[in-house]
Amino acid sequence: MTALLRAERVSKAFGGVQALSDCTVEVARGSITGLIGPNGSGKTTLFNIITGYERVDAGDVYAGDRKITNAPPERAFALGIGRTFQLTRIFPRLTVMENMLVAAQHRGVRRWHNPLARAGGQADRRRATELLEFTGIAGHAKALADTLSYGQRKLLELAYVLVADPEVVLLDEPAGGVNPSLIQHISARIGALNASGTTFLIVEHNMDFVMGLCDRVTVLDYGTVVASGPPEIIRNDPRVLDAYLGTTEEDDDAPDP
């Protein structure tokens, strides 16, 4: 069976720096795939290439059987690939509900529509409210997004990516910079979404988060895949320990739940 999302032998250089070289990553349908590696190993670059924010130097990206190499971001999104950013990017001067509706405009797109119709029909607003309730920020729907805390912004970004029902969601450090109880909350939400059929590709430095949630983990180092497999194999792989200079081992010292 072909993977839902596949980056095949992708290479990308920025000036003299080879961010990715011959990198192949697969995301199986229905999985939560983790993407780990030290800073500068090319994780975010790979995200940017899959979602059309960067162009490849070589290699291809496939969504199912369809080749989507260098498709612009709006097309990648239309094909069912949603993403969040490492440094959360929301629309600060729109309300939380308006943030949701920007993405909702592409649900059930009709060929012809009245461009001056009010933003957000009833169905869109209902779906948006459901997702805000699901992520736990529905109480802020009418507030300007600018007034949200950092953690709430992470939740809003997750919620508005989901509003268009993407097949696969790419999360760039969903647990980065948020407090432990919120990490639990985010992790539980991702698990619940996955159970209802959404596929995830997650970049994350928090090893407990990755190992607890993902059913497959790919490790990048210097833009190349050094290992790929189930979390229990990956956490003991010497190449992975080497890439992380032993930091994984320290993480492992924490008592397992």
Binding site: G52, E74, F77, R83, R89, I90, F91, V102, A103, Q105
Partner: peptide, 11 residues
């Protein structure tokens, strides 16, 4: 507010 983010949401 953020043109690139808007593109990533299908605009």
């Amino acid at each position: 507010d953020d043109e690139d983010r808007a593109r990533g949401l299908g605009v």
